[in-house]
Computed example of a mutant assay.
Amino acid sequence: MVNLADVEAAARRIDGRVRRTPLFEAEPGLWFKLEYLQHAGSFKTRGMMNKILSSEIPAAGIVAASGGNAGLAAAYAARELGVPVEVFVPVTAPVVKVEKLAKLGAKVVQVGNEYAEAYAAALERTDAMFFHAYDDAAMVAGNGTIGLEISEISDTVLVAVGGGGLVAGVIAALRDRARIVAVEPVNAQALHAALKAGKPVDVRVEGVAADALGARRVGDIAFDLATDAKIDSILVDDEAIIHARRRLWDDYRIAVEHGTAAAYAALTSGAYRPAPGERVTVLLCGANTNPADLAG
């Protein structure tokens, strides 16, 4: 099971290659971790850097499957470290993410309507090293380095969850120091459903955040850590996510993707109500979105 020592080792390994993103106090007791300012626009760059740096990469390079952010992180990390990369994405991936993949130098292959279909196609590439977007110990440990940067000011951390690679890392880093709350869309609740069922199960995936939080099944690592740590899991609907994303823009001029806004929706919708004096950190984990609908 990934633990604090693994996260601390990852932090040393990727030091100087990723950004230590800012912490912004939005109001007394509420902090935003501005991880959307990370290289390639999301937290996943941390995990990808750690994975590449801790692996023996074949000449054919690496291959990844992603709804967008993991692919962008893989493309960025591979470019910086001089490794060939091929990224499989669903045809439903946002154009802004696909275009950025190409700009980062990745070979892009679009297959299927969901992440699961792109994942299956990527596995057929046997000459390259497959990088799982979230269910990988090195990836999780790298993602967990975010937790080390917020440990001193957080009683509670709200984390948007898709496949679970971020929340797993945060649990590994902070389980003994902060309350961790997983936040998922009602229409893409892989971790929530797994915790209810007592094991990872397939779920239906749809809704405004499906491009970022659209894993059909939570990763085993995330499930094991979440179960062991007994973390809280709450759900928010699409309307709440859209409202939270708009609030981030209107109130703070922060432009993030819908999946990222899900974490803040836990507060704006009242799904999570902090106790008096509770210090809450919201992880704003990705910004690969088209901001055109935020204008005005």
Rank of each mutant, 00 (worst) to 15 (best):
E8S: 04
E8L: 03
R13H: 07
I14F: 10
D15L: 04
R19I: 03
R19F: 08
R20V: 06
R20K: 08
T21F: 11
P22G: 00
P22R: 05
A26L: 13
A26N: 09
E27T: 14
E27C: 02
P28T: 06
F32R: 03
L37P: 11
Q38L: 05
Q38E: 09
S42W: 12
R46L: 05
M48Y: 10
N50G: 02
K51W: 14
I52G: 09
L53C: 04
S54G: 02
S54D: 07
I57W: 11
I62M: 12
G67P: 11
G68D: 06
A70W: 10
Y76V: 02
A78L: 14
L81P: 09
G82Y: 14
G82T: 14
V83M: 13
V85H: 15
V85M: 13
V85C: 14
E86Y: 13
F88K: 06
V91Q: 02
A93W: 14
K97R: 06
V98Q: 03
L104R: 12
V108G: 01
G112L: 04
N113M: 07
E117Q: 10
E117H: 11
A118S: 13
Y119G: 02
Y119P: 11
A122D: 13
L123R: 14
L123N: 12
E124M: 15
R125Y: 13
M129T: 10
F131L: 15
A133F: 11
D135N: 14
D136K: 13
D136M: 09
A137W: 09
A138P: 12
M139L: 05
G144I: 01
T145V: 03
T145A: 00
G147N: 08
G147C: 05
L148T: 06
I150E: 03
E152K: 05
I153S: 04
S154H: 01
S154M: 05
T156F: 05
V161L: 04
G162S: 05
G164I: 03
V170L: 09
I171G: 02
A173R: 04
L174K: 02
R175K: 05
D176T: 06
R177S: 00
P185W: 09
A188G: 01
A188L: 05
A193S: 03
A194T: 03
A194Y: 13
G198V: 00
G198Y: 15
P200T: 02
D202K: 07
D202V: 04
D202Y: 10
R204D: 02
A212I: 11
A212P: 13
A215C: 09
V218E: 01
I221E: 15
L225F: 15
T227F: 14
A229M: 08
A229Q: 07
I231M: 10
I234S: 00
D238V: 06
H243I: 10
R245Y: 11
W249Q: 01
D250M: 07
Y252H: 15
Y252P: 09
I254R: 11
A255M: 07
A255K: 08
A255D: 07
V256S: 07
H258L: 03
T260K: 10
A261I: 03
A262H: 07
A262G: 00
A263Q: 00
A263H: 07
Y264C: 00
Y264G: 00
P274D: 02
P274A: 03
A275G: 04
G277D: 06
E278Y: 11
R279D: 01
L283Y: 12
A287P: 10
N288L: 08
T289R: 11
N290Q: 09
N290M: 08
D293E: 08
L294D: 08
G296L: 07
